[in-house]
Amino acid sequence: MSLKAFSEYLLLEKKYSKHTAHAYVTDIETFQEFLNDFYDSQAILKVGYSEIRQWIVELVNIGITNRTINRKVSSLNCYYKFLLKTQCINVNPLKKHKALKVGKKVQLPFSEQELKSVLENSANIVDFESARNYFVIELFYATGIRRIELVNIKLSDIDFGNNQLKVRGKRNKERYIPLIRSLMHTIKTYIEYRNQLPVIDDKDVLFLTQKGFKIYEKLVYRIINKYFSEASSKAKCSPHVLRHSFATHLLNQGADLNAVKELLGHTSLAATQVYTHNSIAELKKVYAKSHPRNLR
């Protein structure tokens, strides 16, 4: 079974993004290259768990992290499930595999003061680029959306009557996010500058480059990194840290965990709970200051 068929399965049936499908295929090609050194070209259809374990050991020996190894094995497992589904194999050799242990990765959000500083310093809107960049920052912090979700927003996704935004999440699942009043003003300002662009290649897309083309993920990352690197000492200043900040700050202010889950577009509460470690720290402060037994 060709990897092209597997890639089409990921894109069309699983509704994965092109980036994700490409990553899966690359991981499988890495395993195939390992097999080519010891077996024939069809070995990937014949090997058992012992051969896969040899590959895992080699990845460990060359210094690949457990987290990355787990991702590669997960890609391979997905491929074997596809081969089972298409009746190319009878048994998934990874059926009983257990993921390698990884340490919990705690990602610190931007502080409320850092957010305030960036929003105040970037509020001087004088042209299309400054209007767009400010809008990108404020939209991330006001909605907690993912970078790819921001890139794919269309003008028609904004409901000005109900002050809400339609977002297409993973696997094209749609959700609606309420928009705060200040953000509605920012949107209108940006659209005024957007309409003044001499050329617009894709009139349906909300976020554009200065040349009128659809904005791309690397540019969105550079915008966030530029503004927040000047206001924060954190090693990582990315759109995902802003998403993390959105969730953490809501929880710190007493927002319901299930409500935050819906806003983020998570399918399970467990995915949202990773953002609660900072809110728990905030609760500890409140508890220490407020509990009668602690005030003696």
Results as ranks from 00 to 15, higher is better:
Asn252Ser: 03
Ala255Lys: 02
Val286Lys: 06
Glu282Asn: 13
His240Lys: 12
Thr272Cys: 10
Thr272Lys: 06
Thr276Met: 09
Val286Leu: 12
Ala281Gly: 13
Gly254Ala: 11
His244Phe: 11
Tyr275His: 07
His266Tyr: 03
His244Gly: 03
Val241Met: 11
His249Pro: 13
Thr248Cys: 03
Leu269Lys: 05
Thr276Gly: 06
Leu250Ile: 00
Gly265His: 01
Ser245Ala: 14
Glu262Ile: 09
Asp256Pro: 01
Thr248Leu: 04
Pro239Tyr: 09
His277Pro: 07
Ser238Gln: 11
Leu251Thr: 00
Thr272Leu: 07
His249Ser: 13
His240Glu: 04
His244Ala: 05
Leu264Gln: 07
Ser238Phe: 15
Lys285Asn: 04
Ser238Tyr: 15
Asn278Val: 12
Glu262Arg: 14
Phe246Thr: 11
Ala270Leu: 05
Ile280Gln: 06
Ala259Asn: 09
His249Tyr: 10
Glu282Tyr: 12
Arg243Trp: 14
Leu269Ala: 03
Gln273Ala: 02
His240Ala: 06
Gly254Met: 15
His249Val: 13
His266Asp: 05
Val260Thr: 01
His266Leu: 01
Lys284His: 13
Ser238Asn: 06
Phe246Asp: 05
Leu264Asn: 14
Thr272Val: 00
Phe246Trp: 11
Leu283Lys: 13
Leu242Asn: 06
Arg243Pro: 15
Ser279Gly: 02
Ser245Phe: 11
Phe246Leu: 09
Pro239His: 07
Val274Cys: 02
Ala271Thr: 15
Ala255Gln: 01
Leu257Ile: 08
Val274Glu: 03
His266Phe: 05
Leu269Phe: 09
Thr272Phe: 05
Val274Phe: 05
His277Ile: 14
Leu242Thr: 05
Val286Ala: 14
Ser238Cys: 14
Gly265Ser: 00
His266Gly: 10
Ser238Asp: 15
Asn252Thr: 00
Thr276Phe: 12
Ala259Glu: 12
His277Trp: 15
His277Val: 14
Pro239Trp: 08
Lys284Ile: 12
Asn252Gly: 00
Ala259Tyr: 15
Ser245Gly: 09
Gln273Arg: 11
Ile280Trp: 00
